[in-house]
Design a protein around this nucleic acid. Structure first.
Lengths: 234, 234
DNA sequence: GTAAAGTTAGACGCCATTGTCTAAAACGTC
DNA sequence: GACGTTTTAGACAATGGCGTCTAACTTTAC
């Protein structure tokens, strides 16, 4: 039997690139179909059609449906983790104009990590297939939301140490920051919709406004800032 | 062809009760299996086995798989809406000891509407099959989370009118109250777990504490209340 | 150009599931 | 006990998806 899983090491240039393109095309198509139909509802034929690839090619690259599913989840997880890390590195370091900077950060977080393709995929699939593949999504839980809370907690601790914020429990504050950021988007997140930039901005501003009322220095009242914005329709 | 869908009107006493019991047994079993496996993954045979009923009986009561699914969703939705209404009616009316009363309310809300069987079922199924049955879950969206936000908004408005709270946008505050209440439970909610009473209490207390710091009257500082509680492990 | 590898379309067996049908059994009423 | 209804178990055809196989085709390396 030929070793179909690791032929790339023996290939040169163009073939590898061609194979690689096929693999990515399959992964993207499979993510799309798995996300829409779930594992049981997704058919290899549909994935092949979406990927513009023959069914046999899928079986050549990924031995069976379950292997493909695991590969898709890991691929999306890696992208999502990289994006999360990247966004976390933009957390406002100094406290000038904290409200605006925190708002912009919340927009980035929601837009690139929560409401994007990969975020939707992972949230949906964790709910749908989480019990069937506990080990698979356990790592997501730790590297995704777990890392997010831990990192945010540390960042808020730094701001509290500087005296910019007054926080009792940093972990609680981190979770509440994320929760507040999603408060206005919950329905859209649940239904799988994608918020507009304007909605993202409103949601973030409402969240940060309330967050700072709860955790900002009592004496640091800002003047002239816009009042809380109207609710998002729907 | 016999009219199998409405035989109950012609039946008397015991037979009707027997049929009714079968129907409920089927609905419960189907809810369980649909929730675990999704629509595509659920098999009628498994539902029949869980319900301790023959497969044919299911087809007698509900013409086909999809009819059964719709009936299950409507059944769960009705129960969930009734429970939500019931919990909303316990919203603290007077402002004595507002923090404790709001906390107890948040516990009731999370325990009986969000983290219970029906809540889990609806959240999961809305994500899994929402796109396939938009009309079905549209009504849930309006009667469930929609009603919750609207009702809470009005209740907070009353407290604000009395001067107990200081709120700019009542709808935003309502959504943030719910979001804060779920902040510490997000992971458990996503994974389908059930929090303990202690965890529910902690989560609610953290949420209300922050909520009141943001929306409580600035002069109404409470004395001797416990500080924010430690994070929930996990 | 040739050879090796990857890709494709299609046919195929296999299995699970849906939904129907039938005859027998259980249940409740009279 | 007789009767009508419901329930049951099992057989049944039809469907559709998975995974394999083959023979032809395309791409790439040399």
């Amino acid at each position: 039997m030929k070793d179909r899983m690791t032929p790339a090491v023996r290939m040169t240039g163009h073939t590898q690139r061609g194979q690689c393109a096929k693999r990515m095309s399959i992964l993207d198509a499979a993510a799309d179909v798995f996300c829409r139909q779930g594992f049981a509802g997704a058919s290899i034929d549909e994935i092949a059609a979406v990927a513009c690839v023959s069914r046999q090619t899928i079986y050549n690259h990924y031995r069976e449906k379950e292997t493909l599913f695991v590969a898709v989840v890991e691929d999306v997880m890696n992208r999502a983790n990289a994006m999360l890390f990247s966004v976390l590195s933009t957390f406002p370091a100094n406290a000038d104009n904290l409200e605006d900077e925190l708002t912009a950060f919340a927009v980035r977080l929601n837009k690139n990590c929560i409401c994007n393709h990969d975020g939707k995929f992972l949230r949906k699939l964790v709910q749908t297939e989480g019990e069937r593949y506990p080990h698979l999504f356990e790592s997501w839980r730790q590297q995704g939301p777990g890392k997010l809370t831990t990192a945010l907690s540390a960042l808020f601790a730094r701001l509290a140490h500087k005296g910019t914020l007054v926080i009792g429990d940093f972990d609680v504050a981190a979770r509440q920051f994320v929760a507040l950021g999603n408060a206005d988007l919950q329905m859209m997140i649940l239904l799988g919709g994608t918020p507009t930039d304007e909605e993202l901005e409103k949601a973030a501003r409402n969240a940060v406004h309330t967050f700072l009322k709860a955790y900002g220095r009592p004496d640091a009242e800002k003047a002239g800032h816009p009042r809380q914005l109207a609710a998002i329709s729907g």
